[in-house]
Each structure stands twice: as C-alpha cells, then as structure tokens.
C-alpha cells in the first residue's frame, strides 16, 4: 500500500471511529418546554390563516411574496422576522413550524446565502418585532400571545401540510 493511501485510510478510519464513539449530547433529543407564541402581521394585511407548510416556506424564503386576493401589482414582498438564536420562542417556532434544528437550518441558509438570499431579519426582542410588524407592510413575525395588541393582527396557523 502506498504512503498516501495508507495515511488516508488510517486518518479516515480514526475519525469514523471517533464519531461512532462519541456520546450523544445530553438531552439533545428531548423536547424543550413549549413556548406560547402567535403569528402576527400588520392589520392592513388581509391574511388571517396560514398553513404550517406555508409558514415554513415563508420563513425559508421560498415563498417571498404575499398572494392576497386584492391582486396588488406588483406583489408585496414578505418580510419575515425572527428573534435571536437561542431565544426560547425562536427555538419552539423552528421546531414546530420549520421542523429543523439550528445546524440543519444553518446548512440551508449557508446555501441560500451563496445564491444571494438572506435569512429572515433578526430583531432583538418581541416588542421590537411587534413594532416592526405594525409599521411594515409585508412583515410577519411571532410574539408571545400576551404581547399582542391592536397594532398587529393575529394569523391562525393550521396544523398539517
């Protein structure tokens, strides 16, 4: 066996063994406590119901324009808003709507970034999300239910695809 071949076989075998031997992260498969959130849009947006799959597409930015019955020309861009990574509400939203963990979402967004598509804007607090959504046509965000006020309209999320 040649030197390079032997070296590559040795290194690869070592790493596969290391990966196989590593214990799972404690609690990695456990579901966290569910947070109570609601999806909100500006009151001027007539959308009041979205399927989970539609919300998934919006937050992955594969659906980028509102398709309202008013046939606005041109179509109004959707501006999805996220809370910061690690936020309990964001984690719960990602798990239940996007059905993905941080790493798989990062892989997804790395590939989109290469195509010039950025992930949703991140605002630092639910209050900032509410203010942004209330003032921005096309915006959509999620908030703790207790923070909903008349400046935003709640969108019901239907389960299933």
């Amino acid at each position: 066996m040649k030197r390079h071949e032997a070296l590559s076989v040795f290194v690869a075998a070592l790493m596969w063994v290391a990966a196989a031997a590593e214990p799972p992260r404690a609690g990695a498969d456990e579901r966290h406590d569910s947070a109570s959130w609601v999806v909100v849009v500006p009151p001027s947006n007539p959308v009041r119901v979205l399927k989970r799959s539609e919300l998934d597409r919006i937050y992955r930015r594969t659906t980028r324009y509102w398709n309202t019955s008013e046939a606005a020309q041109p179509a109004l861009p959707i501006l999805p808003i996220n809370l910061p990574p690690g936020n309990v509400l964001r984690n719960d939203f990602a798990r239940n709507v996007l059905r993905a963990d941080d790493e798989s979402l990062a892989t997804f967004w790395n590939r989109e970034y290469f195509q010039g598509v950025l992930p949703p804007l991140v605002l630092q607090s639910p209050a900032a999300v509410r203010a942004y959504v209330a003032a921005t046509p096309g915006a959509i965000g999620y908030l703790p239910a207790a923070l909903v006020d008349p400046s935003v309209a709640v969108v019901r999320v239907e389960e299933g695809d």
Binding site: K2, H4, E5, L7, S8, V9, V11, A12, M15, W16, A19, D102, E103, A106, N110
Partner: peptide, 29 residues
C-alpha cells in the same frame, strides 16, 4: 469527515482511493 465548529465554518479531511490515471491527482489525502 467534516467538522463544523461553528455554523459558517467547516473543516474537512478525506481519503481518496481508486483515483489513478486521471487529472485529479490520484490517491491520497
């Protein structure tokens, strides 16, 4: 093996066998 120490960083190491006789450099690491 690919290692992602952070979400935008990736460290890769791989072995190639069966790569003789092409313009890709052959076998190795």
């Amino acid at each position: 093996m690919a290692w992602k120490p952070s979400l935008g960083t990736i460290v890769k190491i791989e072995g190639i066998v069966g790569g003789d006789d092409t313009n890709l450099g052959g076998e190795g690491l």
